[in-house]
Design a protein around this nucleic acid. Structure first.
Lengths: 355, 355
DNA sequence: TTCCTATTCCTAACCGGTTTCTAAATTCGT
DNA sequence: ACGAATTTAGAAACCGGTTAGGAATAGGAA
């Protein structure tokens, strides 16, 4: 019924609706928004015209005229990773439930692109710009991000850092983080308690806050347990299955005394498990493996992966909740969500306890 | 340097830039867009003012004034699933490389919400609206989607159906599909060739094109191999690990003659494998299992999953490529990407071949 | 009946850009 | 040195809405 062949060829404007309903343009606007008294009879005339013409407002015109934008921008490394995907889901779900639309951008791990994208978002006048994932420990980067926080704030928008440390007290950016360092601490303690004394940490990214914090927890646990830590056991590598696989193969030919591997990520752990299986190393009898994230398939790996649970979806949800609840000019919010270890089957005491 | 404390409090407009540079507003616009001759000296004055004021254009104003929107809308069930996540990545990557931004919406599998969201996208004037995933076989649904295709087309936008069948020749919507039916056919043929005669298909969604097509391939293979198909072996269930787990447990107590399970999805297959492991059924010795999608962790399940590879990322990329390359008013594009089976370790001949 | 107060709607101004059209300033040929 | 061609810049109109600020019409009290 609606398609209206005759007056097609162009999307109808509010003017067309006004003409058809026999009222003025502002009346149509008010009837639709409902923030101003309009006689019932008039309103129904307007609504009928809207239906007949199949009219929808022009979001850009509305945004330009001052009504709020109803848009939340969302920047991640790569939607593909389970980590990001679940945060994305949290963000999208919460945003949608508050009647907002999501603008998505990916950076593919390039700090330069991340900055460029945040800049792009300024053009869009999003209510909030949520940057997800680890930050980079680089002065130039930090400085520019701080600058963007101020620029967005000035423009009535707001920056949210999700899953990375704060930029400082005086920067107008909300931070939604999770217990990253203590999650790594707990897992390392778990391994040390089981009797492991030579543990490799696999997947340190240089200057990426995500791994820096985890390594810090790894270190602190060693210190608390009085176990000396060999720094060469903190191996670099990106957060991928391939990296986990490769680094593990190298590790196996290089050192035979390692009894446990703490992977920076469950994905990395999957690669580790694969390399160990190929090499005929039994997990957990000959080698314990731990991950981080608790992705959906962590329990389906063989053996089921012992890992650190991160409330990804809640992180996303909380980010938009905080951003939207904040009064203009109010102090930036802050939240830290908890993590805890999930014990499954990939960790056991080492075959020959060292002490 | 840029923050400019003095004239802050408001985002600068093009008018401010013009005033500061000592030129008219249109001149600033032209200097920035570069589609009109501007004297080098003037241009640099303008650029300097832009830098000093830290000016960025207002995307809404620009969109309203007629310049193209540079936005692509993207509608999926749930970003969390590997299937959608990879398509999303393809879409985002290609969109970004063509200088477009992505608008993301999720429907959580609700056809009503999907329609509502497409409607919402009309307000946004996106260049293209890409709907991802299976369509619903429901007359009301099909009719409204057809109507939206027309409405979007009329408004200068364009609908792309990604991963679902076309709406018909005369509907202005581009279709980017994959060999779904023949992928299922190939996998079923693979199972039949191995000697299986009683195969369960697990994860049929009622009226969802994704599964309908797969079931069709499942049927056709049985017919070609002259193997009678017991319809009660086509089990319903959503695309989740939990569903795979539950249905498999039920199946095991109900029928003992099934020698292979074809899961609608790798995620479902993960649940199937888990249920079988719990029940002490050896895979592939006692039961063969096949999946569909070839998600990243498919090779890391135990045993490594034999599955059908779907080029998710390419689907996403091709969707935006087709949408953007299309001339206004040109006939809607169409593409079908190939699938192929990936043989790993979860399928073997049945213990007691039946014929 | 008259005056006053609510209602309800319309006219006008504005949001921040882009584009067409016109005028001024320059360059050029001769 | 003069008129024509060519750049370059500005004025005005427009994109599609929203939000004050009046004017008209209605209803109620005196």
């Amino acid at each position: 019924m609606p398609p209206k062949q005759s007056d097609s060829e162009k999307r109808p404007t509010i003017r067309d609706v006004a003409a058809r309903a026999g009222v003025s343009v502002p009346t149509v606007s008010r009837a639709l928004i409902g923030n101003y008294p309009v006689a019932p009879a008039t309103r129904s005339k307007v609504l009928r015209a809207v239906r007949e013409l199949d009219y929808v407002v022009n979001a850009h015109a509305r945004a330009l005229a001052g009504a709020t934008t109803k848009t939340i921008a969302f920047i991640v490394d790569d939607v593909t990773g389970p980590f990001y995907a679940h945060i994305a889901r949290g963000v999208e779900t919460e945003a949608a439930s508050q009647g907002r639309l999501c603008l998505l951008c990916t950076t593919h791990g390039d700090p330069e692109r991340e900055l460029a994208v945040v800049e792009l978002m300024r053009e869009q006048h999003a209510e909030a710009v949520i940057v997800v994932g680890g930050g980079y420990d680089d002065e130039h980067y930090t400085e520019r991000m701080t600058y963007f926080a101020r620029a967005l704030d000035r423009a009535g928008s707001h920056l949210v850092l999700c899953g990375r440390p704060s930029l400082g007290e005086d920067v107008p950016a909300t931070t939604v983080h999770y217990e990253n360092e203590s999650g790594a601490y707990a897992m390392t303690a778990h391994l040390l308690s089981a009797g492991h004394r030579t543990i490799a940490y696999l997947g340190r990214g240089p200057g990426l806050s995500t791994t820096d914090e985890r390594v810090a927890g790894f270190r602190r646990a060693h210190a608390d347990y009085g176990v000396p830590l060999d720094d060469t056991l903190i191996l670099p590598g990106e957060f991928s299955k391939a990296a986990g696989y490769d680094r593990t193969q190298e590790l196996l030919e290089w050192r035979s005394d390692v009894t446990a591997i703490f992977a920076a990520t469950d994905m990395v752990a999957a690669g580790v498990l694969r390399a160990l299986r190929k090499a005929g190393v039994q997990v957990p009898q000959d080698m314990s493996v731990a991950g981080f994230d608790d992705i959906p398939l962590a329990a389906d790996l063989t053996p089921a992966l012992t890992t650190v649970r991160v409330p990804h979806e809640d992180l996303g949800r909380e980010s938009v909740r905080l951003a939207l609840s904040r009064e203009q000019g109010a102090p930036a919010g802050r939240a830290v969500l908890g993590t805890h270890i999930v014990v499954r089957e990939s960790v056991a005491p080492p075959r020959q306890p060292r002490d």
